[in-house]
Amino acid sequence: MSAWTGLGGFVGDARLVAAKDLRIEWRARTTLGQVLPFALLVLVLFGFALDANRPTLRLATPGLLWMTVLFVTVVAVQRSAAVESADGARRVLLLSGMAPAAAFVGKAAAVAVQLLVVEVLLVPGVVLLYDAEVESVPLVAATCVAATVGLAAAGSLLGAVVAGVRAHQTVLPILLLPVSAPVLIAATRAFADGFGTVAVEGWSWVGLLAGFAAVNALVGAVVYGPLLEEA
């Protein structure tokens, strides 16, 4: 096996792309400076809207949280795709000879890190704002990881699909939100169990999230190269 296809090279390329995207994000401060305040504001406004009915608010907490994460995903993926389309920068990925699958994994990993940062701040936020109680930390943590990987993989895949479309900023949410519906449903149910608001088997929903993540990661790794060329 040549160095190009070796696992070490693959991991190195994925790390290079992820580090590059995270550095760009750190400089632009899109997630931390714009998206995170927006996400927190959404949670506060939901709190105002439903505060009169505290039991309803508590029951709706998991859904509200994951709906907010979904909005954040759309912005993070749009930003991730825009990084490659600005000034022909995708030529770096195309001309370097890097395995497209490694580039995909790197880009999805960078989106996942941003989403995890947002979730780490949003979960304590709902505990404080909505009086939610975390009954199973492992279940909540596993849900966050599995759902995040799925959203990042599906988002990065669709970001590449729409990269060549003229109205890509409009088309991306139209595609991503319905595709992410299984994540929204499964993560909400798993969190409902983790927060002790509904008696469901949360871990089985985590299994569904892991399956969604695996399928999207696999498809993304296979088709990212042709999509990158066509964009």
Binding site: K20, D87, G88, L95, S96
Partner: peptide, 22 residues
């Protein structure tokens, strides 16, 4: 177009190009 990442410096862009190209 230049195929550069605008948020990265010249040196960082060249390092990305070089490392990606092995």
């Amino acid at each position: 177009d230049t195929a550069l990442y605008g948020e990265l410096s010249a040196a960082e862009n060249l390092q990305v190009w070089a490392r990606a190209s092995r």
